[in-house]
Design a protein around this nucleic acid. Structure first.
Lengths: 234, 234
DNA sequence: CGTGTACTTGAATTACATCAAATGATGTGG
DNA sequence: CCACATCATTTGATGTAATTCAAGTACACG
């Protein structure tokens, strides 16, 4: 999967009050009145799959909320490989370190066509003056990040490649009611689990043969959750 | 290393204004006046090595600051093994999730004789009413946790066992001016790096043979940082 | 229709885990 | 203070899982 740094398509000034994911987003606890009279320069952006939203070490000037799609946060160990440390989907926030005026600590790359809203840190600081609720919201976001990071380490980076792949499927099924989920390209799977793409490929194939999962079109898979759980706890 | 849940020795009511690590601690930005007139029930505690400070899933009623010593945060994957996800030393805070009224997400265990101060969440909430600075301080702590978690994944859980051990030595040397550092028991090293204690042992022995490190008494090692860095970037 | 990219599969090699046994360190009770 | 128990460390031998290198297939796109 090739990665490009592009200008995202600008989709206009968003109307935060009407945002469908507002209950998930950073501003969920703010009242209508908090927005009035502020010219916040919040933007709606659309990125195609495989594009860089921001790059590691770049000065952080904005926080983003995922409105639709999926984003991966990538870090680069000194050996030249890359490691995906987090996966962000609808409602998640990225680039929080910008609020503390720190440079971005990851490279953020879209994994699908993705809709984001971009909130400059200046807006965060402005809003905060009026409404300390935002701080509480930010703390919760941070807490979620730590939780996801720890889960990533304990579940997706521990154990054999087989158990890791099984856990990844369970992770992706997570909140869904149906038992099918979309996987990414094998290279992404490898970067998430800390294995090679060939190993990832072999194990996915093995799971298919054993009918633990069932390949559907477009990289989707129907999962036998019970058997996956059994494999995941070895 | 056996682990016990004990009552810590109570060392009395601390005088936060005079704390030597206050510049590192949660309250660093608070003014003297913020403390006056508040009966905060902050406690000073001493734990011997290998003792449980709090356990995973326990309701979080207090945040802790490490005044001296070292603490590990441990999680348990379903296969019965354990994984150390973070290492906390002087000045670090643990159990921040308690501020958000969440249960503790790890089991916290001392790795040395350790001095802690215990701050009930009620105290945090009281202080916060007067002083929003504390929130900013808390956000920085959270940011540090995420940073450490990501570093842990990218550096200490990626690559061969050899490079991981080398990176652990570099990590432990981190801020120090001298080039020696204290290692823990091999089992702890294994739980940090996601390898077995035998492998950890072999690699430490190999480094000693190659004179990349030099064993000193009491599990301390003198490190050749340059050669370690070379190994760490393979 | 050809070309590039991702995916798949195989065979050889390597790194690591596992099992087992010996050594060393530490502490306890007689 | 010694004998013994307990626990961490070390080292070796063996098996296995995963990487590496390589070749071939499927698929999308100009």
């Amino acid at each position: 999967m090739k990665v490009k740094k592009v200008l995202a398509a600008w989709r206009g000034e968003p109307q935060c009050e009407k945002c469908q994911v507002r209950h998930l987003a950073l501003f969920s606890e703010l009242a209508e009145s908090d927005f009035v009279g502020l010219h916040l320069h919040i933007e709606d952006l659309e990125f195609p799959s495989g594009n860089i939203i921001y790059q590691s070490k770049e000065p952080g000037r904005a926080v983003f909320t995922v409105r639709h799609g999926a984003v991966k946060l990538v870090q680069y160990p000194p050996d030249g490989t890359q490691r995906t440390v987090r996966l962000l989907r609808q409602g998640a926030a990225l680039g929080l370190e910008a609020v503390l005026d720190k440079p971005y600590r990851h490279t953020a790359i879209t994994m699908q066509n993705t809709l984001l809203c971009r909130i400059p840190t200046t807006a965060i600081h402005q809003l905060n003056v009026q409404s300390p609720k935002l701080y509480s919201q930010l703390m919760h976001r941070w807490e979620q990040s730590v939780e996801q990071a720890d889960e990533w380490l304990t579940f997706l980076s521990t154990g054999t490649a087989r158990t890791r792949v099984a856990r990844l499927f369970l992770h992706l099924n997570g909140d869904a009611y149906d038992t099918s989920c979309q996987l990414f390209c094998r290279e992404d799977v490898a970067a998430i689990l800390g294995i090679t793409s060939e190993t990832a490929c072999r194990i996915v194939a093995e799971f298919c043969r054993d009918k633990v999962i069932n390949a559907l079109p477009n990289n989707r898979f129907e999962c036998d959750l019970l058997r996956l759980k059994k494999i995941a706890s070895n």
